[in-house]
């Protein structure tokens, strides 16, 4: 079957959205510092756009756990990301996270290398852990946080550090030692694609947990599948959409497999659980 036309590819929109989010995070220290425009402040730990406040769920949760104190603006700020995760799963990770943007960028750059480009872009995983390592990461993170008594992920979260280091560079003209964490996370990608995101990201684990019964899933249609296994190769998370693993918690809805599938056996589906009902004729078939 023919490849999908350029503008119909969902990944194209994902790349555009990732770039937009990255520009917002990188650009807002500049606007704040040089032009004193305070319309957007912060980064993905907490971003303020006008009067809209968004607080990252894990950071907010850690703050609540250690301070034992509920602060309403913080809780209200967590509503949007939690709802997003509840309905669509880990879309923050695949559609917004600056680390995913940088990983994708390295993948694309590797793809330009002649001869080995394609092998490097969709490289094989050298080291694999059990998928449920993700949950241990979340539990360990929360336990360490509560034992020490100070939130930990708030200062070592790689997506947050991307924003913080940019801000440090713009405001104070130096970069802190924590930038090493971002570099290490990106280098881990060379061993296994998205190694940190897959196995060790506590924020990803929390979002996956919230989105366990998400509405937006990639559905696998066995009758259309020809068994070419391209989707397994393309998946950055190392799961196998060809056996229906795209509906598990470990899928982050990045749509790489949807676009790669030559027979469109994989597609986005909005599950109907009575929460948001669709007209009867389109039930289960409304691709997003």
């Amino acid at each position: 079957m023919a490849k999908k036309s350029f503008f119909k590819r969902i990944t194209l929109w994902r790349y555009l959205f990732l770039t937009l989010c990255f520009i917002v995070v990188i650009g807002n220290p500049f606007t704040n510092y040089y032009w004193d425009i305070n319309f957007i402040q912060g980064w993905f730990q907490s971003i303020g756009i006008g009067n809209l406040w968004v607080v990252s769920p894990l950071e907010g949760l850690e703050s609540i756990l250690t301070a034992k104190f509920f602060y309403m603006p913080s809780l209200v700020g967590m509503v949007i990301p939690v709802t997003l995760a509840f309905l669509m799963g880990r879309v923050f990770c695949s559609w917004m996270c600056p680390i995913e943007f940088l990983s994708l960028l390295t993948d694309k750059i590797l793809g330009f290398i002649p001869k080995w480009g394609k092998d490097l872009k969709y490289r094989k995983d050298l080291v694999r852990f059990a998928k449920y390592t993700l949950w241990f990461a979340l539990v360990a993170e929360l336990m360490i946080t509560m034992i020490i008594g100070y939130p930990m992920f708030v200062w070592w979260s790689p997506p947050g550090l991307v924003g913080r280091e940019t801000m440090f560079y713009v405001f104070y003209k130096h970069i802190t030692i924590e930038a090493v964490i971002v570099v290490v996370v990106l280098l881990m990608n060379l061993i296994t694609r998205r190694m940190f995101c897959r196995y060790f990201c506590p924020l990803g684990a929390l979002l996956a947990l919230i989105g366990k019964k998400r509405q937006l899933v990639i559905e696998y249609n066995a009758s259309k599948c020809v068994g070419c296994k391209i989707c397994d190769k393309r998946c950055p998370m190392g799961i196998k959409p060809s056996v229906g693993e795209s509906q598990t918690v470990y899928c982050w809805n990045c749509a790489e497999c949807v676009d790669a599938c030559p027979t469109s056996a994989l597609k986005f589906v909005w599950r109907d659980r009575g929460f948001i009902t669709l007209p009867k004729g389109t039930k289960g078939e409304s691709a997003v």
Partner: peptide, 22 residues
């Protein structure tokens, strides 16, 4: 314990007097 290190206070500070520990 409460602070989530989002850096918004430093970004809005018009005198750039708020700094951050590393």
């Amino acid at each position: 314990q409460k602070c989530i290190r989002c850096g918004r206070c430093g970004e809005v500070c018009p005198y750039h007097c708020i700094k951050y520990f590393d």
